[in-house]
């Protein structure tokens, strides 16, 4: 269950971090599978040039080891708190999103975000000015972040010594297909758990 403060934060900011949402044993097992895949399977499938990060761990995308991170943890409970009880389709597909360090002497660029689903041949979007700078979300293994579909987002540049490991899925409301592109403007249509916050604000 999320607190009213957490719901409010999601409503206002468009995202919410939930510390420790996934048990360490499940996180460790998932990370082990990802690291095994990097070493023993390597880069495979899709368009390795355009989606270099996504080219790893394809064979894990539908594995329960990965989908359970969402379906059998507090992540789904939190999502239903926001989207509505019984309104969230089970997670069937997970993107294993490793982000490897940049080259040692390269300058670190500022994060550059996008919205999903805007086709331009290379899956990008026009540059827009935003009132707030990007937040590079920090956290610990097992933390979950839920973000509204209409959030500009990205994987920030990695100038650390370590690989950034994350599992990302795109949760769907049961009426996602029916609502379609109307939610570009009616952005709380699929958010029963927080829609009333909009009335009082």
């Amino acid at each position: 269950m999320l607190s009213n403060e957490q719901k409010q934060e999601f409503y206002e900011q468009g995202y919410l971090k939930i510390p420790g949402a996934v048990p360490p044993s499940m996180v460790d097992e998932a990370r082990k599978a990802m690291n095994y895949s990097i070493g023993a399977v390597g880069q495979t499938g899709e368009d390795a040039e355009a989606f270099k990060v996504a080219a790893y761990c394809h064979e894990l995308r539908g594995e329960p080891l990965m989908t359970d991170l969402f379906n059998r943890t507090g992540v789904m409970d939190a999502a239903e708190c926001l989207i509505g009880k019984g309104k969230v389709l089970p997670c069937e597909n997970v993107q294993m999103a490793m982000r490897f360090p940049t080259i040692l002497d390269d300058d670190v660029p500022e994060p550059r975000g996008h919205l999903d689903g805007l086709g331009n041949g290379k899956n990008g979007m026009a540059k827009v000015d935003f009132p707030h700078p990007a937040v590079q979300v920090t956290g610990k293994a097992g933390d979950a972040v839920i973000a509204h579909h209409q959030m500009v987002h990205t994987g920030g540049p990695n100038a650390s010594p370590d690989i950034r490991y994350a599992a990302i899925t795109r949760l769907r409301h049961v009426d996602c297909e029916a609502n379609g592109i109307e939610v570009y403007t009616d952005i709380w249509r699929e958010w029963d758990g927080v829609r009333d916050l909009g009335i009082t604000v």
């Binding site: 990097i38 390597g42 490897f100 360090p101 080259i103 040692l104 100038a159 010594p161 690989i163």
Partner: peptide, 17 residues
Amino acid sequence: IEAARRAVNHSIGEVGM
């Protein structure tokens, strides 16, 4: 150590096998 680890992790992901 961190510079070396960064170079190694970069290689694992961007150079690969």
